[in-house]
Amino acid sequence: MKHLRTLLLLLGLLATACAGAGTRAKANALDKAQYAYSATMRWGDIRGAWAQQDPAWRAAHPLTDLELERYKQLQVTSYQVLDSTGGDPDEAMRTIEIGIANRNTMAARTVTYRETWHYDAAAKTWWVTSGLPDFWNGQ
């Protein structure tokens, strides 16, 4: 009986350790995805940022050629994370302040953007579910 309790305790500890490793791996994957997304935005790579949008969101909100041309008129001058929250292991949010300048008029301003992220267990990746920043109407 003593050996059975010891075995059950060890199995419980092993299960806890495996669950913790999965959570850490998911958190690391989120960090990498957010870093990559930040880089695409900083470099003005809208197509790269578009590729990190949730596929269901992209299907429901297709990016038109006109919208793509509008994004090309802007230069991202800064991208700063103001706040980051988690809580749910499959959801995350960040509040971002993005500085932009119009390439034609050189008018500059900042926009606050709230990124929402969701973990897709089937694809084993994190997707942005908030869409691209709306630099014209605010978001």
Rank of each mutant, 00 (worst) to 15 (best):
T85F: 07
W117G: 02
W43R: 14
Q34T: 15
V81M: 11
L74M: 11
L30Y: 12
G99A: 09
W136I: 00
H118F: 07
E115N: 07
E67M: 00
A108N: 02
H3A: 11
M106H: 14
Q73G: 05
T95P: 05
R5V: 14
A56Y: 06
T77Q: 08
L11R: 12
T77S: 10
H118C: 05
P55I: 08
L82K: 15
L4E: 12
T77D: 11
G99F: 07
G138N: 14
M1R: 15
V111Q: 02
Q139D: 15
K2T: 04
A101E: 11
L11V: 12
A39C: 04
Y35G: 10
I100F: 08
A108Q: 06
S78V: 04
A60G: 09
Y71G: 00
R47M: 07
Y37I: 01
W43T: 14
R94V: 12
L30F: 15
R109N: 06
T112M: 08
N102P: 03
A92T: 05
S130A: 04
D45W: 08
A56K: 10
A56L: 10
L4I: 11
T112Q: 14
M1F: 15
G20E: 07
T112E: 11
R70N: 08
E67I: 00
A15S: 15
T105A: 08
L11Q: 14
V111A: 01
H61D: 01
A92R: 07
R114F: 02
P62V: 03
G48T: 12
D54H: 15
V81P: 02
E91W: 07
Y79G: 10
V76G: 03
V111N: 03
L132H: 05
D90W: 03
E91M: 13
G131Y: 00
G44W: 13
L7E: 12
L11P: 06
N104L: 13
Y119G: 04
W117T: 07
F135D: 01
A19R: 12
Q73R: 15
A19L: 14
E97Y: 03
D120V: 01
A60K: 11
W126K: 07
L7H: 07
G20K: 05
Q80I: 13
T40I: 02
T40E: 02
S84P: 07
G86P: 04
V81Y: 05
A25V: 11
E115G: 07
A60E: 11
L4C: 03
D65M: 02
L4Q: 10
M93D: 14
A39H: 08
